[in-house]
């Protein structure tokens, strides 16, 4: 029994051919694994490594470097609130406080008790003219107010199924940012 489905493993084995050198497939492969699992478990990373004929330690080293790979469970909907300077100057810290309170996380927690939401503060998302802003799942939201946050949360709590968040170009996309990476040691 593998952590990843046979189909995903097959897709991963086909990736290296798309790149001038096979190693470039490691991140797209981790995307596929994360999409299936929600976050990257040690087993999933080992299976990715085997499928790509790489060392498991190497794959884990890559996964831990990049913040969009999740090594811990995340919520079904994920808030990424920008708190860098342009957003901070226009009230990002209040937005963060409001999101935390509205989804019910406290202290260093990042996932709501019901598992529906998780939240993270992130660095500049390249949409500073719309500050304060955030990414919710795969979509940007601009000119945030506490009211827009409440509306977005209510929509996602409502029992009517939402249209699935489409991945760009109909292609698979990575899930957002993981807990803080630890520094590299060279």
């Amino acid at each position: 029994m593998t952590a990843l489905s046979a189909q995903v493993l097959e897709e991963i084995r086909e990736l290296p051919a798309k790149y001038p050198q096979s190693r470039s497939a490691v991140m797209p492969a981790l995307d596929l694994a994360q999409e299936e699992m929600g976050h990257l478990t040690p087993e999933a990373m080992t299976e990715v490594a085997q499928a790509l004929q790489l060392d498991p330690g190497y794959v884990e080293g890559v996964a831990t470097f990049y913040s969009l790979f999740h090594l811990e469970p995340v919520g079904k909907h994920r808030f990424y609130v920008c708190t860098n300077l342009s957003c901070m100057l226009r009230g990002a810290n209040e937005i963060v406080d409001h999101v935390r309170q509205a989804i019910g996380v406290s202290g260093s927690e990042q996932v709501s008790p019901d598992g529906l939401f998780s939240y993270e503060e992130v660095e500049c998302l390249g949409a500073c003219e719309y500050a304060p802003m955030m990414r919710l799942d795969h979509e940007y939201h601009y000119d945030l107010t506490t009211q827009t946050i409440d509306e977005l949360i209510t929509q996602r709590r409502s029992p009517t199924p939402l249209a699935p968040t489409l991945s760009p170009g109909g292609e698979r996309v990575k899930k957002p940012r993981a807990p803080r990476k630890k520094k590299a040691d060279g």
Binding site: Y80, G126, H138, E139, P168, G169, E171, K174, P176
Partner: peptide
Amino acid sequence: IRGEYDRPYRMLTE
């Protein structure tokens, strides 16, 4: 292209 740029990625792909 940075991973958070979902929309620009989609538009460039198209």
